[in-house]
Design a protein around this nucleic acid. Structure first.
Lengths: 249, 249
DNA sequence: CAGCAGCGTTCGATATTGCCGAACGATCCA
DNA sequence: TGGATCGTTCGGCAATATCGAACGCTGCTG
């Protein structure tokens, strides 16, 4: 990797900082966080405001993310080939399983949700597109980790979300082995109490895993008598295979 | 407005260009579009790739938007106060009217959709958050234009979407007068054949219109016998008033 | 199969560009 | 009312990003 432009990199760091914490941040706070002079930051912020990436609160003078970013983010969804090619299959998967369907990709060591179909006949759910899921505590994440050529696993912080979250590196490694051999992943109450998820890998034309598709729903529906009902696994694997076939063309 | 940083502004221009057209763009295309040397653009692009705002196609070497932007865009939704405060009311509006509910803001002369609740019991709809609606051909847009202090109206291109779209500036001005006096806007088949929309203004604590909320649905449901059924107008106006009251606190 | 035109990328000289730190007024809190 | 902190301004300095030409490479085309 060659040289990069200082001011652009700093602008990106500001945007990431504004995105990480909720609410607004002031020039002084940003200056302390990045270790830069206030004046320098002010100049970058002025430019970011000018292009609409950042907005300034009229009263307090503090800064927050701008509306242009929302539009850029949704434009990314149109450009993302994996998503555009798999939307119809995700709809079908949600319809057949009567559960919410999800598509994710590995991005910066986390699972980025790039598509989300609500569970049929159940609105009042919040859309999760653009949010991150923990890779070690989600079915999508297990699939992606299991086939990740770069092996981001060792650097992962295995934060517990419920008492069933896998926090032992060895245990996770064994789980990923299982995912690799049988071709799909499950997650039972490892992220949220009472919720279960299933996922399978999506491959591109070269056979490399570029994403994962799965469903998520209540324990009592997907595994009412203990073990997962295998029909749901079939739905997910069928959808994954269909998309993989689609991408090969 | 004071001086702005050249490279950051150029980086933003690149992102906007990548977002406007679908698919990928090459260094040479961008250089021609922006009137800059190839070498300069390459440096900025290298930086944008490094921060994840842009991705490069391995085979062709062309550039497209990156996944980080999706996350930044969804972070904007969390930060946006208007949206977080009105989500519950939009859900209620969709439930009561049994139609899809929408919230929008004026941004760069267009209507930016910042929230969208699907019509109950009807999945298989594509989410429109982050997309733009034409202000002169949408109920949300009419509300926002009618109360826009900056008067972006004269600069608007009144592009026709159906044969009923308002394209005469004078006619639009009269329509906006109507919106102002009666406090809500309607749009009947001016954007899409067979679809009708209603919207009302959301005001902040100072009484300034900061957004609009409305519903959109099939003509045969919202106006089966010609004129709009006024119960739908009541639903929308109630929701708008409730959010306005909420923002005042 | 050769030629060419276009692509993305590299590189070093140039001076333009953006960085810095101190100083300013406004605001908030004690 | 005092002090501390905020966002903002400004000018000098040099680090910094820009520029244009040159380099391989790919993929057309004659």
């Amino acid at each position: 990797m060659g040289e990069t432009i200082q001011s652009v990199e700093r602008a990106a760091a500001i945007l990431r900082l504004l995105a990480s914490g909720p609410g607004r941040l002031g020039v002084a706070e940003l200056a302390r966080a990045l270790g830069l002079p206030k004046g320098t930051l002010h100049g970058i912020l002025r430019t970011l405001v000018h292009v609409g990436f950042v907005e300034q609160d009229g009263a307090t003078g503090k800064y927050r993310l701008g509306a242009t970013l929302l539009h850029l983010g949704s434009s990314y969804l149109d450009v993302n080939e994996l998503r555009t090619r798999s939307i119809n299959w995700a709809d079908a998967l949600a319809g057949r399983s009567r559960e919410s369907a999800w598509i994710g990709t590995l991005h910066e060591g986390q699972v980025l949700v790039i598509h989300h179909v609500f569970r049929p006949d159940d609105s009042m759910q919040t859309l999760q597109v653009g949010t991150y899921l923990p890779p070690h505590a989600s079915a999508l994440g297990k699939v992606l980790l299991a086939h990740d050529p770069y092996g981001e696993l060792p650097a992962l912080p295995l934060r517990p979300h419920t008492k069933r979250t896998i926090v032992e590196p060895a245990a996770l490694e064994a789980e990923l082995d299982l995912v690799r051999t049988r071709g799909w992943a499950a997650e039972t109450e490892e992220l949220t109490e009472g919720e279960v998820a299933i996922a399978a890998p999506i491959k591109d034309s070269r056979g490399i895993v570029v994403g994962a598709i799965g469903i998520r729903g209540a324990l009592e529906r997907l595994a009412p008598d203990g073990p997962l009902h295998m029909e749901y696994v079939s739905y997910v694997r069928d959808a994954a295979r269909a998309i993989t076939r689609d991408l090969a063309r």
